[in-house]
């Protein structure tokens, strides 16, 4: 779905051994790495590398919704802005939102709207920002998966994380997690996102040509991958907040600063803890 590459001859996306251009089997996910809490100013953040994708997600909120007339008196707004950096694609992209980014922002906002406990924060907005720094297809899935971690990092109350992955069809074979070439020259692409615990689908798009059977195969691949991604999300969040006493004493704490909310790890053992559940 990104830019078009020029090719001289016809490309075979799957070879006789059933291997794809990058050596993967049809049901293999690209390597994924997630890190939570990577930015200072944002209330929550996460960085993700997924194959050739590099995506940064950040959350502010709940905060006062602006402009005022958009405020919902009964609940928080959940607003996502997905953006691609000009240097994230082979042919430089002009800064600013294009129609594709606007559409992706909308469907991701709606996905998170399904899990955030909006009624707890009337008249506010939960603002989610996804920045694609390097693109290799599947950026909306990467962005959504990373943004989920950022929301949890920010302490935004929600029902569950959301995990997202796409499957498609290349050379007639249903495959998981298409990369850029496969997306450009393949026959179908179907990104989706689920609530891992319940299996509810909060995002679903599709373009191309799939039979009903192929669609079901694609969904099954994506759902399996989403469960694996969920493990990585959980692991990233746990890692962020697991610190031993040695770590504490090794590094000097940062200097005092005003208005620098630093959502860093930390929690008290029970014996030293004040009133519970503040």
């Amino acid at each position: 779905m990104e830019d078009i590459e020029h090719i001289q001859k016809e490309m075979k996306l799957i070879n006789e051994q059933g291997r794809r251009l990058d050596g993967r089997k049809p049901d293999e996910l690209r390597p994924v790495r997630i890190e939570a809490g990577v930015l200072r100013r944002a209330d929550g953040s996460a960085y993700m590398e997924w194959g050739g994708n590099k995506v940064l997600a950040a959350v502010y909120g709940p905060r006062e919704a602006h402009p005022r007339h958009l405020q919902d008196p009964a609940r928080a707004l959940v607003q996502c802005r997905y953006n691609m950096a000009p240097f994230s694609v082979s042919d430089r992209k002009r800064p600013g939102p294009d129609r594709r980014s606007v559409e992706i922002s909308k469907v991701i906002s709606e996905a998170f709207s399904a899990v955030v406990f909006k009624e707890q924060f009337p008249r506010t907005s939960v603002d989610i920002f996804i920045e694609v720094l390097q693109a290799d297809a599947g950026t909306r899935c990467a962005g959504l998966t990373a943004a989920s971690v950022a929301l949890a990092d920010a302490g935004v109350p929600m029902r569950d994380l959301v995990a997202s992955c796409a499957s498609g069809k290349i050379d007639g074979v249903v495959c998981l997690d298409l990369n850029k070439e496969e997306d450009n020259f393949g026959d179908a692409d179907c990104p989706m996102a689920i609530v891992p615990r319940t299996g509810e689908i909060v995002l679903l798009q599709m373009d191309g040509h799939l039979t009903y059977d192929e669609f079901q195969k694609a969904m099954s691949l994506s759902i399996g991958a989403a469960q694996r991604l969920y493990e990585l999300q959980r692991d990233a969040l746990r890692r962020r907040y697991s610190v031993t006493l040695e770590d504490i004493l090794k590094e000097p704490p940062s200097a005092p600063m005003v208005a620098a909310p630093s959502p860093e790890p930390g929690l008290p053992p029970e014996d030293d803890f004040g009133p519970e559940g503040i």
Partner: peptide
């Protein structure tokens, strides 16, 4: 006050071990 502030930062940033006091 600078020292007190550093101590508060310590508690905020990395307080998930026993013996924080």
């Amino acid at each position: 006050t600078g020292i007190a502030a550093s101590a508060i930062r310590l508690i905020e940033e990395r307080a998930q071990a026993f013996g924080l006091t």
